[in-house]
Design a protein around this nucleic acid. Structure first.
Lengths: 210, 210
DNA sequence: TAGATTGTTAATCGATTAACAATC
DNA sequence: TAGATTGTTAATCGATTAACAATC
């Protein structure tokens, strides 16, 4: 099945998930590719192509069973089971992520917070104590943590990234504005806020100046 | 020139900017497409194609003049002049954005903060007072604000988005996890953190379970 | 001049859309 | 059965790569 799931399909996967979740809450128990496509603002053909490579199947003349497809996507994304994650860097952004806690909803349970700043170490956020980054490696190994959020400044991101991977981390949600240069088998998802802001600025400029 | 700058090219534009900025600080005054490509992990051909549609030109046998190209990209992205922006929603994420202030570096000057929460209204963050969202429309009109950051909860995002556009906002950096459904001429850049987290989870799952 | 590297056209690759037979 | 809609193949579209003549 996963012989060739394109990047473009992966981007749409969470969107399908959200869309179908909403339908479930509305009590809709089946949906056609064309109805889903309309809601997602894409073509029905693309929905069917995506579902095909993802191994999601429907029934001719009827459509796709909402509940079943929903659970299957959940399964594919690995958010049906609980993951333990840590957050490294508890500055403003790190703290905001902990407090907003979009994680729990998707099965990500925060089990550790780390920082270098002695003024933060020992503080509790949402009931979790901030530890010294000196404990990082030991903590990862001892608790067999595989997933981490990296919200440290640019200048130390590469170093800490490598440290974490050496200790056993396999996936990193990277908010530092730098490329971590890690081995290919490590899954890294970059969020570069300033790049996104510049994109906005460029598109705005193009519309309003040209 | 801007007859057809593809989405893919726009994504790379801030990356070119960062790359070339770094080179400038290193005192490199010209660069070939192949050297830049190597640094960006793309092909030299793609660099030249991108630069062509963007109107960035070099010299055969020599390459591209770093300084000139840098300033031209800055110009294209509209970050050579000062923009006044406002932040609507000063919860944890909004506050983190103000405090981290990635804005100023790119010429975005925060001139207003807004929230509904009476416990936040009147507080100052980085020297800027949080106002009631009731003042929002008047403030936008009076100060001719065209760009806004939207960091409010999902359930009120659409309403506030429309309000802002009616008052004169032309570009929105949208952190609420919802589609704003605004007219096409309004530039919207969405950041959906939970979608990004799900993408990470899926890719991780694919690597480590299959 | 000779070497390097651009600007640009043509070829390839990948992703989206269209079409339609299969079938619930 | 007739209508609806899938699953899948073929056609199109867009983006990337390769190639090379032009030229600094």
């Amino acid at each position: 099945m996963q012989n060739k799931i394109s990047k473009a399909t992966i981007v749409r996967l969470p969107q399908y998930y959200n869309c179908i979740e909403e339908m479930l809450t509305q009590g809709i128990d089946h949906i056609s590719s064309s109805a889903l496509a309309k809601k997602m603002d894409i073509t029905a053909s693309l929905v069917r192509q995506d579902f095909n490579v993802l191994g999601l199947f429907g029934q001719q003349g009827y459509g796709y069973p909402t509940q079943k497809i929903y659970l299957k996507i959940k399964d594919l994304m690995g958010i049906n089971c609980h993951h333990h994650i840590i957050i490294v860097g508890t500055g403003n952004l790190g703290q905001a992520l902990v407090i907003n806690n979009h994680f729990e909803k998707y099965g990500f349970h925060i089990v550790g917070l780390f920082d270098v700043n002695p003024r933060l170490i020992g503080l509790e956020i949402s009931g979790i104590k901030i530890q010294s980054i000196d404990n990082l490696e030991e903590f990862i190994k001892k608790n067999r943590i595989t997933m981490a959020v990296l919200t440290v400044p640019e200048n130390c991101a590469k170093k800490i990234g490598k440290q974490m991977v050496d200790a056993g981390i396999k996936a990193i949600w990277n908010f530092s504005h730098t490329d971590l240069n890690l081995p290919e088998k490590i899954t890294v998802e970059n969020i570069c806020l300033s790049d996104s802001l510049m994109k906005l600025s460029f598109r705005f400029h193009l519309q309003n100046v040209s």
